[in-house]
């Protein structure tokens, strides 16, 4: 999966009105809540086989930081 495809997928699943970019501080958005965290964990698990843990969610800042946690080798 490309980085852009991942961001698009996340945008679709979260149904955020705000456009997401690599440098979006996702947890700063008003729409971010515990359901968003749940959806993010599900999207990452289903597409990359990586289970984000509570401390990963805490550490997230930008969308790019999510990509780093997943592992840059998982993107083409």
């Amino acid at each position: 999966m490309t980085k852009d495809a991942f961001i698009k997928l996340l945008q679709d699943e979260l149904e955020y009105e705000n456009e997401l970019y690599g440098n979006t501080l996702i947890k700063e958005l008003e729409e971010w809540d515990s359901m968003s965290a749940m959806i993010l964990i599900g999207v990452v698990a289903q597409n990359f086989g990586v289970t984000l843990k509570a401390n990963d969610i805490e550490a997230i800042t930008t969308i790019d930081s999510i990509l780093e946690i997943i592992g840059s080798d998982k993107f083409n």
Partner: peptide
């Protein structure tokens, strides 16, 4: 969040 984390792990 903690309970969700636990169940998935």
């Amino acid at each position: 969040q903690g309970v969700f984390d636990f169940t998935l792990r």
